[in-house]
Simulated assay, not measured.
Amino acid sequence: MDINRIRVAAKERFAGVCRVCPVCNGVVCAGEVPGMGGLGTGTAFRHNIQALAECRLNLRTVHDVKKTDLSYRIFGVELAMPVICAAIGGIALNMNGAMTEEEYTQAVVSGCRQAGSIAMTGDGPNPLVFDAGMAAIGKEAGWGIPIMKPRETEKIVELAEQAAAAGCPAFGIDIDAAALVNMTNAGQPVGPKTIQELEYIKNRTTIPFIVKGIMTPDDAESCWQAGVDAIVVSNHGGRALDHTPGTAEVLPYIAEAVKGKMTVLVDGGIRSGADVLKMLALGADAVLLGRPLAIAAVGGGREGVEFVLNKYKAELSAAMTLTGTAQVSDVPVEILW
């Protein structure tokens, strides 16, 4: 298996819903929601890519870093590197039926485990979306993190209890899906959460609680006040609100506000191991990959996901060597030019 074969197969199976462009930057697919593009003008998607591109790495080779340590521990789970698969649900709608929900979740959950990573699984108006993720996680003995829509608080608690019973190390909500019309139209209302509602969820659940979709320091502080264990700096891949800044732009301000108090994760436009290192230097503890692993799953199944993650691992190790960075747990901002 190689990356070109994965990409060719994925392009064929996507049948136009994703062109598998040489550079996945949101230009061609702007406005294609449902689909794989960014909302409206696609500006938020493109800002993710641009913000990372504007971060440059200092090449340093006169140092004593002979070996790099990529290992990372989160929620009691040991990972081979600080890279997690982001939750993507609604495969039939967003991926033109390129795979079934069950096939996709099994590919990412199992592929991640084989590569020493862990996958988040999704949620949607059709219970099949959440259930498929839980089934895939069950087959891997709890190795996965289910992410729910920002539903009514009691429903979130109910689903979180399912996750805990399945042995999941954590659960979360993608609060940036607060305006999803398809959820409300299906009789499953979603919306923003107050500090009190987040605190309610935290106090009635037994495994770590993640809130994904944080783009400002004050929202991050609110999550910390509510006792949330981790946040994901994310604009939902540019699919929630048009014209937001890129995640790499806001990450340093959010990290300054809450890093050390809670785990800070980030997604958005990460297309290489070097991009992973940039995000770590900007203040993230670990990163999430969305579209790159979706392409890997569609083009190569479980083996494709494992292959792409190992490719990121090799790129991250090389970037660390060439910037004099020994450990992913200690990436100084000074590696950025």
Rank of each mutant, 00 (worst) to 15 (best):
G124C: 14
A132G: 08
F130C: 12
R113C: 05
A115Y: 10
R113L: 09
E140Y: 01
D123W: 00
W143R: 02
P125F: 07
A135T: 10
A115V: 15
P125G: 05
K139E: 05
I118E: 02
I118G: 03
A136V: 11
N126K: 08
I137S: 13
K139Q: 09
L128M: 04
T121P: 08
G116L: 11
G144V: 10
S117A: 15
E140S: 09
G122C: 00
A132K: 02
F130A: 15
A135K: 15
M134P: 05
M120P: 00
G138E: 13
G144T: 03
D123T: 00
I145K: 04
A132R: 06
D123E: 00
L128D: 06
A119Y: 12
F130N: 14
M134G: 02
F130L: 14
G124N: 12
M120T: 04
G122M: 03
G144I: 13
A141E: 13
A119S: 15
A119I: 13
K139W: 04
G144M: 02
T121W: 01
G133A: 12
D131A: 06
T121C: 02
I118V: 11
G142E: 13
G142K: 12
I145L: 02
G122F: 01
A141C: 11
G116I: 09
G124S: 15
G116Q: 08
D123R: 00
P125M: 07
G124I: 15
F130G: 09
I145A: 04
I137D: 11
G122A: 06
W143L: 04
D131P: 01
G142M: 10
A141T: 06
P125K: 06
V129T: 11
I137T: 14
G133T: 15
L128A: 06
P125A: 09
D131G: 01
